[in-house]
Design a protein around this nucleic acid. Structure first.
Lengths: 115, 115
DNA sequence: AGATATACCTTGACAGATGAAGTATATCGT
DNA sequence: ACGATATACTTCATCTGTCAAGGTATATCT
């Protein structure tokens, strides 16, 4: 069973930024890496992926350039900016905080009266 | 700094269901509990909360009844249904899976060639 | 009388995700 | 030579959850 859309919503940019922190990359490759890292459990829908690139470029978190002609279809590469690195850091910390909050909110508590 | 909306998106129903698994409750109380459990770090916007109740009632995960007149404003209580309990279980498992996926996707990997 | 806490409800607008459709190149099997 | 498949990117219309803003009502405290 796939992960429902809304659960991952808002993490798309962070997932992409994480990979661009390692090296410049392009949509198709990033998505293949997502599949590999999740052992096939998750992948972006194409529209989601390319919408995210446009959004992040507008926000100044990434810049784009066309890859030189190699074999296969032309590739649009993306590089992370300084602003993008800051955003990644912010988002990364937010994820850790959120994870803690959800762990607290999704567990049933004993009904103790001592509170 | 508050948790951004999109990060929690999709967890609203699960958070509410978790509390209804413990006992019948009403909007205001559920939200106070969210604040308590997160030490004030998070709370629902009212519109989000009551939208969620309506949605979940339509989905058959909860049922509603008016609390008998006590002191203060009248309360609308919600009770979880069997379908709701199943949904909670599904969502709960999904959260644990998602947490694992995100942990894998938001960490930088060493650039090893051995793959 | 006015402020505050409790408690609920509705409407309109926004933003991210996505189904669907399209374009283009290279490779592999037959 | 031809079709299937993999690679690779793009745009548009639609859907859904969130939430700002506004509203209603009761009880308590000063």
């Amino acid at each position: 069973m796939p992960i429902s859309a809304d659960i991952l919503r808002g993490h798309t940019d962070t997932i992409i930024l994480t990979q661009l922190m390692e090296k410049d990359s392009y949509g198709y490759e990033i998505n293949k890496n997502v599949q590999k890292r999740t052992q096939g459990q998750y992948e972006f829908k194409e529209a989601t992926l390319y919408t995210a690139f446009k959004r992040m470029e507008q926000n100044g978190w990434i810049t784009a350039y066309w890859g030189e002609d190699g074999p296969g279809a032309r590739r649009r590469y993306y590089a992370i900016t300084d602003a993008g690195r800051e955003e990644w850091k912010r988002r990364s910390e937010e994820w850790h905080r959120t994870r803690g909050l959800l762990d607290a909110l999704l567990v049933m508590e004993d009904n103790d009266e001592s509170n």
